[in-house]
């Protein structure tokens, strides 16, 4: 393809090709300092749906090794988002080496905290906030569980801040922020590059010590979650649990049986950070 950029994130290498220069230039700035893989695990393509679409009201079609047949194209102004979605799609549909959980993760002192829940539950924002105050960000979107050891492999992609969460990161180094993307299908989005520590240590695994199901916008409450319920919710949060067969089964069962599990409701982000830190001290 006309333009190409390679990015290594944790154990996964991406090759991103594009019909236009702009999306890859934005990707370059956002992923400054990331290694480049010699051999890519996955290929992402940002393509013009029709040849003339490259110039006339350009639309970006997200292609690659793995695709959704009905994925709607994005406007070229949102090309960076298209690249991010393309990488997510490869992981969600193609990852077979690690058990992939739709979960965020942070680590301190070798002990990892996993957070999972429905979209909008705040797991991504929470992980990003913790990543700015003494925790190491492992990933805001996907947690990669090693089926043999149970360890988490960091996957510190750029954090996708949405809508109100964008304002919470006003005071970070502006060089770590991507462009403000308004009116995307998901609202306003701005990407945040994890801090240098998270990138430098992207090959350093961590053992899970606590699993949380956070929920934003509810009165503060902490509940225990039964193992059966936790197991079911994690299978629903995994895109490759079924494909990994018995390895995935054993990995998930071990996780559920070895770490405490809690559901955490919280009214706002400040109290959430506090509550989570306290829980970690008590349980992890």
């Amino acid at each position: 393809m006309r333009h190409e950029r390679r990015i290594q994130v944790g154990p996964v290498g991406f090759r991103i090709g594009s019909d236009w220069a702009a999306p890859l230039a934005a990707l370059d700035r956002l992923y400054a300092g990331y290694p480049e893989p010699a051999i890519a695990d996955f290929t992402v393509r940002l393509e013009a749906p029709r040849p003339w679409r490259r110039w006339l009201r350009p639309k970006v079609h997200i292609g690659g090794d793995y695709m959704l047949p009905d994925a709607a194209p994005l406007s070229l102004a949102h090309g960076l988002l298209a690249a991010e979605m393309g990488m997510n799609l490869q992981m969600a549909l193609g990852q077979r080496r690690y058990l992939l959980l739709h979960a965020s993760g942070v680590e301190k002192g070798g002990r990892a905290l996993l957070m999972t829940g429905l979209s909008g539950a705040g797991k991504s924002t929470l992980a990003a906030l913790l990543g700015e105050c003494g925790w190491r960000l492992l990933g805001d979107e996907f947690a990669l569980v090693d089926c043999d050891s149970g360890a988490l492999h960091p996957f510190p992609r750029a954090v996708s801040l949405k809508n109100a969460a964008v304002d919470l990161f006003d005071d970070v180094d502006p060089g770590r922020l991507g462009p403000l993307l308004a009116d995307t299908p998901k609202g306003t989005i701005r990407h945040l590059r994890p801090n240098d520590d998270a990138i430098a240590r992207m090959e350093e695994t961590a053992m899970p010590a606590l699993l949380l199901f956070p929920r934003f916008g509810h009165a503060a409450e902490i509940r225990e979650v039964g193992q059966g319920e936790a197991f079911v919710r994690l299978t629903q949060a995994s895109t490759n649990y079924v494909a990994l067969e018995e390895r995935g089964f054993e990995a998930l069962a071990r996780l559920i049986r070895t770490v405490p599990v809690r559901a955490v409701d919280y009214p706002d982000t400040e109290s959430a950070v506090e509550a989570v830190e306290r829980l970690c001290e008590d349980l992890a």
Partner: peptide
């Protein structure tokens, strides 16, 4: 093969095993 290639091919074989089953 290099480690990365071996890893990708092993994952593809596991995927095919799943398809077969």
């Amino acid at each position: 093969q290099s480690d990365k290639v071996a890893e990708l091919l092993a994952a593809a074989r596991a995927s095919a095993d799943h398809a077969r089953r």
